[in-house]
């Protein structure tokens, strides 16, 4: 008697789970683009419809040796190691903004290769270590 009730409840639960997974999956399908926080240079290159007026974010690594500072402006290249985008920005950058590090730029595309940023965010990677370790890693790399 009890067992039967439990079975009924169990099947309700399973049905509920399947429905929920399906609903959430569909929700994310609809949201698709909005779930991505930024686009990589390759995604920009491969996309067909680029809205130049729309505010978007692009992200990747600041290419080594690419930062050019002018009086108030700064120019650098964002790369995902396959494709690159030149970013121009005027204003202050976060303290962690550096060559070879991750970056997210918010603004709009001028064309597929040139991006005008209104805001720069530094992206931190998953590595945590003391300065000495970083130095010895750098030495090893050289």
């Amino acid at each position: 008697m009890l067992l039967k009730k439990v079975k009924i409840r169990l099947s309700i639960l399973l049905a509920l789970s399947v429905l929920s997974v399906l609903a959430i999956f569909l929700l994310f399908k609809v949201l698709e683009d909005n779930v991505l926080y930024f686009y990589s240079p390759s995604e920009i290159k491969n996309s067909d419809d680029i809205n130049l007026k729309k505010k978007i974010r692009i992200g990747g690594m600041v290419k080594k040796g690419s930062i050019q500072s002018y009086e108030r402006d700064i120019k650098f290249i964002v790369t995902d190691l396959k494709n690159e985008i030149i970013v121009s920005y005027s204003g202050t950058v976060p303290a962690l903004f550096a060559e070879g590090k991750g970056v997210v730029a918010e603004g709009s595309l001028k064309d597929k290769k040139f991006f005008i940023a209104k805001r720069i965010l530094a992206k931190h990677d998953e590595n945590y270590m003391p300065p000495e370790v970083q130095e010895s890693l750098n030495k090893d790399a050289k």
């Binding site: 779930v35 926080y37 950058v93 976060p94 303290a95 962690l96 965010l121 530094a122 992206k123 931190h124």
Partner: peptide, 12 residues
């Protein structure tokens, strides 16, 4: 705020 340069981001 000190690392990314923002308090909040609507990322996933």
């Amino acid at each position: 705020q000190p690392t990314w340069g923002t308090w909040w981001a609507w990322d996933a």
